[in-house]
């Protein structure tokens, strides 16, 4: 039982990270109907930004007491800013000119961007894994279950961000503009919504969440690599689809589920086949529920 709860905690931690990245996929998909394949690499850029900030700042302010908190905050904020800038630029340069064109064209530019970004980091920062010393190493033992401070930080930050994010989407004019653009881009434009700006902001929000996820990933595993964008990216995309692409709660649910599947499968079966299990369950769910768990079924009028 304790073992099970332990795995549950581990799974939820991992799932939080996937969920944060999945939101970026699902938002962009919802608003412009495009799979932003480069989103996983935005996540990786976030991890690298946090890594570099850590390297630069930690010798200056140290790792004691409040300093860690400041450092963490700095890592998060800088990573969010930098990746937002990147995602904004990518949208402007590679996706916006193709809006309204052939559906596969932006998918291909996104794949191209993904290849470009991971290779850019490989060339600029070198191909080796980049380890950092543990940032928060406290581990608490609650009723036989060990929870590290890292895990608590990850879950708290995720929950806070989700709350903020949920508020923005549902209770601000910006969120309303986003939802309107999602429903009908032309009509939204006719009603005076700046569609281009709304889409840009969506990309920025997605990137910021991915940056947080990237920083968390770095803190959790203590290492970053140029090709870290791919596997978590695919997992997060899987999460978004599993939850029903376009649905925000779906993305979070999908992320948590995938995190749980992974950790429980590794714990009770073989770690080698954990990804196989994830993908197989995805395929299985989609076969019976072709639009994901919380997605609206696609009804084509005859």
């Amino acid at each position: 039982m304790e073992y099970f709860v332990q795995q549950l905690v581990n799974g939820l931690t991992l799932g939080s990270i996937y969920g944060l990245v999945a939101i970026g996929y699902t938002m962009v998909y919802g608003i412009i109907g495009m799979v932003n394949f480069a989103h996983g690499d935005i996540f990786m850029l976030g991890a690298f930004a946090a890594l570099i900030v850590f390297l630069v700042l930690s010798p200056i302010i140290g790792l004691a007491g409040v300093a860690v908190l400041v450092l963490l905050l700095a890592m998060l904020v800088v990573a969010m800013l930098v990746t937002s800038l990147w995602n904004w630029t990518i949208e402007r340069v590679a996706y916006r000119p193709l809006r309204g064109s052939f559906r596969l064209a932006p998918l291909i530019t996104a794949i191209g961007m993904s290849i470009f970004l991971s290779n850019f980091i490989q060339v600029a920062q070198g191909p080796r894994n980049k380890p950092i010393p543990g940032l928060v190493n406290n581990v608490y033992n609650i009723a036989g279950i060990s929870i590290s401070l890292k895990q608590i930080v990850i879950m708290v930050v995720t929950a806070t961000l989700l709350a903020v994010f949920w508020y923005i989407v549902n209770h601000t004019p910006l969120g309303r503009a986003q939802r309107a653009t999602e429903q009908d881009r032309k009509m939204a434009a006719l009603l005076g919504i700046d569609v281009d700006r709304t889409i840009s902001i969506t990309f920025i929000m997605g990137a910021a969440l991915a940056a947080v996820a990237g920083s968390m990933y770095l803190i959790y595993y203590g290492v970053a690599s140029y090709n870290d964008g791919f596997v978590p990216g695919v997992k997060a995309f899987t999460a978004a689809v599993l939850g029903g692409i376009g649905s925000l709660p779906g993305a979070v649910l999908g992320g948590l589920l995938i995190g749980l599947i992974e950790s429980l499968w590794s714990a009770y079966f073989t770690i080698a086949y954990k990804d196989v299990a994830t993908f197989a369950i995805l395929a299985f769910v989609l076969i019976f529920k072709p639009s994901g768990l919380l997605g609206r079924p696609e009804v084509e009028k005859v």
Binding site: A94, L98, F102, A105, T109, F116, N119, Q122, V123
Partner: peptide, 21 residues
């Protein structure tokens, strides 16, 4: 060689931008 895939990715983007079809 290091720049091979970097340029491949960039070329994918550029070709699509100029010839989406």
């Amino acid at each position: 060689e290091l720049y091979r895939m970097l340029l491949f990715g960039a070329a994918m983007v550029l070709v699509m931008l100029f010839k989406p079809r």
